[in-house]
């Protein structure tokens, strides 16, 4: 469904991503893991059109989307839930959701979609009229995911959904991700919590210093020595 070939990203002189190749098949969860600064967020940003691609190609559903503006990539059905959630703090939960679905469907459909999201995330119904900035970290993460889903994406890129959440909330978020997958969503998941990521993912790719150092099924990686030593603390 998505393939990234020979991706290279530069910030000025710094080469943040040297060479990343990965593919995500329709309906699977691909986990992208690696240490801080490995280039995970940059890779997601490049797919979503937020980060300039220095070399390489991004192909979604057979269409070359390399270098397209973020709004164009979004309309093609790829949604990014960015690192740090970045919900609109001064807007209500309702307005955050509304923007998520604004351009992807007629207004009547957007209302139905919103109803689905409020079913899926009851907490958002409770705080429907509250400012996004007043929600807790976990609630904001739910809002960020719901906002992305409002646009009915076919693929979702999640950047560290567990960051800063209490363990119990992490479980809730991961249950939700598993639930989305069951419903057929294709997911590219960036996660620091490698154990959790490998539990939920079908396949995984390990990045180090902007390069793929390992990839395989989640099971294979969970039992590989490199991953166990470097990321699972075993």
């Amino acid at each position: 469904m998505l393939s990234v070939e020979g991706l290279k990203i530069r910030y000025g002189e710094v080469e943040a991503v040297r060479r990343v190749d990965l593919t995500v098949e329709s309906g699977e969860i691909l986990a992208l893991v690696g240490a801080n600064g490995a280039g995970k967020s940059s890779t997601l940003g490049a797919i979503a059109g937020l980060v300039r691609v220095a070399a390489g190609k991004v192909v979604f559903e057979g269409v070359d989307i390399t270098g397209l503006a973020p709004e164009v990539v979004a309309r093609k059905g790829v949604a990014l839930v960015p690192e740090g959630r970045r919900i609109f703090a001064s807007l209500t939960v309702a307005d955050n959701l509304r923007l998520g679905g604004a351009v992807h469907q007629p207004a009547a459909e957007a209302r139905l979609r919103e109803e689905e999201m409020l079913e899926l995330f009851p907490i958002l119904r409770r705080y429907y009229r509250a400012k996004g900035g007043n929600l807790s970290g976990g609630e904001q993460q739910m809002l960020a995911i719901a906002r992305a889903l409002m646009g009915k994406p076919r693929m979702i890129l999640l950047d560290e959904p567990s960051l800063g959440l209490a363990p119990q909330l992490i479980d809730t978020v991961f249950d939700l991700i598993a639930e989305l997958r069951r419903k057929g969503m294709t997911i590219l998941l960036v996660e620091q919590n490698v154990a959790l990521a490998l539990e939920i993912a079908d396949r995984a790719v390990v990045l180090a210093n902007g390069e793929v150092v390992l990839s395989g099924t989640a099971k294979e990686l969970a039992s590989s020595d490199l991953v166990r030593q470097a990321y699972l603390g075993a």
């Binding site: 937020l50 973020p70 979004a74 990014l80 960015p82 923007l99």
Partner: peptide, 11 residues
């Protein structure tokens, strides 16, 4: 507040 994220919404 955050222009990039507005663009991520397809706007």
């Amino acid at each position: 507040e955050d222009f990039d994220v507005v663009r991520l919404m397809g706007i």
